[in-house]
């Protein structure tokens, strides 16, 4: 159990008691809303968990590294962005991976695009995001995030070579 989860759990529990003390009825409404949201979100969440498992199990990290490593220039940038968009790796793991890519000779350009697309664009999240915010918002956000990733990568490249 991560520290973040523990802190969030304790904080929410405290808020829940505070809410209960102030207004029982409102608190029950809140819990009912939470339960409805659970029912609505569960299929998407379970699907995401399955997809993440399949990706981590079946896509070897070495392959990720070799595709983006070396002097690939714009091709590396394209590869990195595409990979980052399709793959989902939690940022905490993405940074060590990015470091190893840099060490293996991947460019700052590729690596920075990789980090941003990895964390901001989630093709595996599209179903969930469309369900919550509508397909139009989901596709716009992912498209614009790709633009953001490329822009940030080029800026990083121009400063850090």
């Amino acid at each position: 159990m991560s520290l973040t989860a523990l802190v969030v759990d304790v904080a929410v529990l405290a808020l829940l008691f505070l809410s209960l003390a102030r207004d029982k009825e409102k608190t029950f409404t809140a819990l009912r809303l939470a339960f409805n949201a659970l029912k609505r979100l569960l299929p998407g969440v379970l699907a995401v968990i399955g997809v993440i498992g399949l990706i981590l199990g079946f896509v070897p990290p070495q392959w990720v590294a070799s595709t983006m490593g070396g002097e690939r220039g714009m091709l590396g940038l394209a590869f990195a962005s595409l990979l980052g968009s399709v793959l989902f790796i939690p940022a905490i793991i993405a940074f060590p991976l990015a470091k190893s890519l840099l060490d293996m000779g991947a460019s700052v350009l590729s690596v920075s695009a990789f980090i941003t697309t990895l964390t901001m664009i989630g093709f595996v999240f599209l179903p969930l995001e469309s369900r919550e915010l509508g397909a139009r918002f989901a596709f716009s956000r992912n498209g614009l995030s790709l633009a953001a990733a490329l822009l940030v990568a080029i800026l990083m490249h121009s400063v850090l070579r």
């Binding site: 973040t4 523990l6 929410v12 808020l15 829940l16 409102k26 608190t27 809140a30 939470a34 968990i49």
Partner: peptide
């Protein structure tokens, strides 16, 4: 997920009513 998801949902419920 099990450790954090329920808490996030409850937080959202509380947010919605308060």
């Amino acid at each position: 997920m099990l450790f954090i998801f329920p808490a996030v949902l409850v937080l959202m419920g509380l947010f919605a009513v308060w």
